[in-house]
Simulated scan of single mutants.
Amino acid sequence: MTDKDKLSVTVDPDVAAAARAAVSSGRAGSVSAWVNEALHRQVDHERRLNGLERFLAAYESEHGTITEAEMADAVRAARAGATVVRGKRSHGAA
Results as ranks from 00 to 15, higher is better:
residue 2 T to H: 08
residue 2 T to A: 14
residue 2 T to N: 09
residue 3 D to F: 08
residue 4 K to V: 09
residue 5 D to L: 14
residue 8 S to F: 03
residue 8 S to D: 10
residue 8 S to C: 02
residue 9 V to G: 12
residue 10 T to K: 07
residue 10 T to S: 14
residue 11 V to S: 06
residue 11 V to D: 10
residue 11 V to L: 15
residue 12 D to I: 03
residue 13 P to H: 07
residue 13 P to R: 05
residue 15 V to F: 11
residue 18 A to S: 15
residue 19 A to V: 02
residue 20 R to Y: 06
residue 20 R to S: 13
residue 21 A to P: 00
residue 23 V to H: 01
residue 23 V to L: 01
residue 24 S to T: 11
residue 24 S to C: 00
residue 24 S to I: 04
residue 24 S to V: 07
residue 24 S to K: 08
residue 24 S to M: 08
residue 25 S to E: 14
residue 26 G to Q: 07
residue 27 R to S: 13
residue 27 R to I: 01
residue 29 G to A: 10
residue 30 S to P: 03
residue 30 S to N: 05
residue 32 S to H: 03
residue 35 V to S: 04
residue 36 N to M: 05
residue 37 E to H: 10
residue 38 A to Q: 12
residue 38 A to F: 09
residue 39 L to P: 02
residue 40 H to L: 14
residue 40 H to Y: 12
residue 41 R to F: 13
residue 41 R to L: 12
residue 42 Q to Y: 15
residue 42 Q to V: 06
residue 42 Q to C: 03
residue 43 V to S: 05
residue 48 R to L: 11
residue 48 R to G: 02
residue 49 L to Y: 05
residue 50 N to K: 08
residue 50 N to L: 11
residue 54 R to M: 13
residue 55 F to N: 07
residue 55 F to L: 13
residue 56 L to K: 10
residue 56 L to D: 07
residue 57 A to L: 10
residue 58 A to R: 14
residue 60 E to N: 09
residue 61 S to Y: 08
residue 62 E to Y: 09
residue 62 E to Q: 15
residue 63 H to S: 04
residue 63 H to C: 05
residue 63 H to F: 10
residue 63 H to M: 06
residue 64 G to Y: 07
residue 65 T to E: 12
residue 68 E to C: 05
residue 70 E to S: 11
residue 71 M to A: 13
residue 71 M to N: 11
residue 73 D to C: 06
residue 73 D to Q: 15
residue 75 V to L: 11
residue 76 R to L: 04
residue 76 R to Q: 10
residue 76 R to H: 06
residue 76 R to G: 04
residue 77 A to H: 10
residue 78 A to N: 06
residue 78 A to D: 06
residue 80 A to P: 02
residue 83 T to F: 00
residue 83 T to M: 07
residue 84 V to S: 02
residue 85 V to Q: 10
residue 90 S to L: 11
residue 91 H to T: 13
residue 91 H to W: 12
residue 93 A to T: 15
residue 93 A to M: 12
residue 93 A to N: 08
